[in-house]
Design a protein around this nucleic acid. Structure first.
Lengths: 117, 117
DNA sequence: ATAAAATGAAACCATATAGTTTTATTTATT
DNA sequence: AATAAATAAAACTATATGGTTTCATTTTAT
């Protein structure tokens, strides 16, 4: 197959699309419901869904008059594989922790120590 | 800190920039050398490096008349963290293997089974 | 002291991106 | 049968992106 116009990396580059993926991770949803979570038009959301669809991150099925989208999470494995090349640089967990702490307020994560039994 | 114009996800969206990261993973290089690996102008490469720099994926240091760029791999941890949210969908290795096999010729990877002792 | 090397910076260009509004089509509902 | 709901498709817009060429600056070399 020839490479599609949008690949996974481009697809996840947009913050709105990443939010859409998060939504669909919880459950499959029709376009209108997805739209209700964003301040943009339904048409704009539909376009994002097309891009996600091209990248195979999401799959849409027409049911009655609505089109229901669901996450296709396996595709993200491509990203994981790409990342794995760089894991050698931080396969020691300390470097990860260091980075996370240093960027605590930037990344929108609240960090909780994993093994605080 | 306010979000920079380019974040990690946008930075890695471009194939050329991903190749640049690969190059720098091996060793730090000056702009001109990086350029020699691509069919585009030095100026274009410099721009890519600026974007990677904004995203903190690389760091450039001026040494004499050249500017030497090196990889800043910790930043990729942000991507790993983002991905981890979806790991629950394929934390069973079979689904990963399934995906990899099905897309063998598309992703340019040769897969070797990990634990084939 | 000049010339060459390496980069920086500016101006420009074509296309892509992310959004809009408008119009049409399909499918329920009443 | 008529209306409302959900989406599809098209046309348009502003800005971003990825590239170019040209000119200036800084730093070796000869």
């Amino acid at each position: 197959m020839t490479a599609a116009k949008h690949d996974v990396f481009q697809a996840i580059a947009d913050p709105t699309r990443r939010e859409v993926l998060r939504l669909l991770a919880d459950k499959e949803l029709p376009i209108s419901e997805i739209t209700s979570h964003f301040p943009i038009s339904r048409t704009a959301v539909a376009k994002h869904l097309h891009i996600l669809s091209e990248a195979k991150l999401v799959r849409g099925e027409k049911v009655g008059r609505e089109k229901i989208y669901q996450l296709q999470p396996e595709t993200l494995i491509e990203v994981k594989q790409w990342l794995s090349y760089y894991e050698r640089f931080w396969d020691n967990k300390l470097s990860i922790l260091k980075h996370v702490v240093e960027n605590d307020d930037e990344n929108g994560f609240t960090m909780i120590k994993d093994d605080c039994e």
